[in-house]
């Protein structure tokens, strides 16, 4: 492999990391509060708002139903309005974020619903208001689950980021298609795949490690 090609792969890796990191970050910023709301706003729950819950739930489901490649193309005008352009790595962040946010919202919702209802009751009995219950009980207790879910979301984003080549998003997937497939250079394709595997592996292991550190539910670190 020539030095030129190595530089291309390196550049593509950085582009992928950039797209995944930024869309993951913004997606979390949107998805986390949305997930908290979905988990606490059904009838009779902490922030009971059944109608808003239904509507947001429908929107989230609709967003998650759209195949990613269609989403990318369908929201081009929106992407242009947000990013100023509809092609390129930065533009690709818009559809990636839109795909990540509802996914993350559902993950956060599930992790929060896993928190024992007895803890909410105990906090209410202490005189906690809904905001305190969310900040001091639900989020900290759900954190290990949320971290594992975010790990899953990042891995999915790495996969999605390979499709944004369709709108000039560049990155590893795009490189693999253009060189490996269109220019018939299977070696490049192989290297791209290997880099992706390493990336996914690294993200997964890091996520699991963090989640384990945060999780004190099992008596694994029994003291002396």
């Amino acid at each position: 492999m020539s030095a030129n090609l190595a530089a291309l792969i390196w550049e593509a890796t950085l582009q992928t990391l950039y797209m995944v990191a930024v869309s993951g970050l913004i997606g979390t910023a949107i998805g986390l509060p949305l997930g908290v709301f979905l988990a606490t706003s059904k009838r009779g729950e902490l922030m009971s708002a059944p109608l808003a819950n239904r509507i947001l739930g429908l929107i989230v489901n609709a967003m998650r139903s759209i195949p990613f490649i269609i989403l990318v193309v369908a929201i081009i005008p929106f992407t242009r309005a947000i990013a100023g352009t509809s092609i390129g790595t930065t533009a690709a962040i818009v559809p990636l974020t839109l795909a990540a946010a509802p996914f993350i919202a559902r993950i956060v919702e599930t992790a929060i619903r896993d928190v024992d209802g007895g803890l909410i009751e105990a906090a209410r009995a202490m005189g906690a208001n809904p905001g305190q219950i969310i900040r001091k009980v639900l989020l900290p207790e759900a954190l290990p689950g949320i971290v594992l879910g975010l790990t899953l979301a990042m891995v999915s984003l790495i996969g999605y980021s390979a499709m944004v080549g369709a709108v000039g998003g560049e990155g590893l997937g795009d490189l693999g298609i253009r060189y490996g497939y269109q220019r018939f250079m299977p070696g490049v394709m192989l290297v791209v795949v290997v880099v992706l595997i390493v990336l996914v592996q690294a993200v997964q292991s890091t996520g699991e490690w963090i989640a384990r550190r945060l999780d004190h539910r099992a008596a694994k670190d029994r003291g002396p």
């Binding site: 024992d116 105990a122 202490m126 001091k136 207790e141 954190l143 290990p144 945060l214």
Partner: peptide
């Protein structure tokens, strides 16, 4: 104050952290 059959302690807070919770809330 209230105590429960299944204790309802926060798994991710230490003994100290659990006892501090109502004070933080107050």
């Amino acid at each position: 104050g209230m105590i429960f059959q299944h204790f309802n302690l926060l798994a991710n807070r230490t003994v100290r952290g659990n006892v501090a919770l109502p004070l933080e809330i107050a």
